[in-house]
Amino acid sequence: MRRSGGENMGLKGKIVSIDDNKLNLMLIESMLESMNLEIRSFTDPSHALDYIKISHPDLIFTDYMMPEMDGIALIKRVRETEPDVPIVMITAVDDDDSIKLSALNAGASDFLYKPLKLYEFQVRVKNLLSLRKNQLLLKDRAALLQREVETATLKIRMREFETLTIIGRASEYKDTETGNHIKRVAHYSKALSEHIGMDSEFTDALFFSAPLHDIGKLGIPDSILLKPGKLDEQEFSVMKEHTTIGYKILADSEGKYLKFGADIALSHHERWDGRGYPNRLSGDNIPICGRIVAVSDVFDALLSKRPYKQKWEYDDARRFIQENGGIMFDPQLVDAFDKLKEVFLDIMHSYDDADK
């Protein structure tokens, strides 16, 4: 390896030169002597490939005719790990055009012809390194822009979640003891969705929309919603209407999460055995979003104090979910619920009403 001194247009870079003829390598080194570049020369293409993988050079020169691996094969190998670095093949002027075409197809950026001419060679190097610099700058800017977009998108999504949570809490405004119920339901639902292999788009929509599951309670009279003790048959019929009320509130929206919330509002009280409401759907006919929120909602409701009930013990609430797999709840989700015990405990403690 040879380092030269001095500055030349501010250009700095690492160059790899590959040729089975040491005299040719020495010629290239001498021609780059004044350009403040780091040059690493190889007579063995395999050793050059190993170096390229770890050093990520800014420019590569390769001869065509080499006994172990020709220049075209080398270029193909380099392109597997370095898709953008400029690669210059050095060939004889009278080489077959098919060789040059093959080199271009393999990923060669340019050609130089033997015998090399000092001035032309140095100008080509300057131009190719300038191209490389601009290439890397564009990559850096693109990566920075991508990070900025991702950050802005995350902020928008979190603001949207906050807005949806506030809308969801409107349904609980008259029942202050439910506290962080809707936040826990959103996080429980997300954990269940991820565990059963739903894609990220679905899981995100579920997370942002789950807080709207009881929005229809806004249309239920206080005398029923806040009644201490068990509802009679007529009162329960009115209470069940919160599912269809919620659907009607949300269904005509253009927003993705509000539409998703409409499906959740309508279906989260359906039961696996078909004895739920409002439409007595059963099994897989119940939207998966409603099935997931059903498990999360019931589990958290059991652990929350309400006007009509006391708070259940944790183990009793878990047992209720487990015993109702295939009855109230999707058995697959009950199995996921069993395996996510620690995750649910973390969520429960993170959004404990006593700590808020």
Rank of each mutant, 00 (worst) to 15 (best):
K227M: 08
K230D: 10
E233K: 12
E235K: 07
V238S: 00
M239F: 13
H242N: 04
T244M: 13
T244I: 14
T244H: 06
I245G: 00
G246R: 11
K248L: 05
A251K: 15
A251R: 15
S253F: 10
S253Q: 08
K256S: 05
Y257E: 07
Y257S: 04
L258R: 04
L258P: 00
G261K: 08
D263Y: 02
L266H: 00
E270C: 03
R271H: 12
W272V: 02
R275F: 06
G276R: 00
G276N: 05
Y277K: 07
Y277C: 03
P278K: 11
R280C: 09
G283E: 14
D284M: 13
D284F: 08
N285P: 02
I288S: 10
R291D: 08
R291N: 12
I292V: 14
I292Q: 10
A294H: 15
A294F: 02
D297I: 13
D300S: 09
L302E: 12
R306L: 07
P307R: 12
Y308V: 01
Y308W: 14
K309Q: 14
K309F: 06
W312Q: 10
E313H: 12
Y314R: 14
A317Y: 05
R318I: 06
R318W: 12
F320T: 04
G326F: 08
M328W: 13
D330M: 07
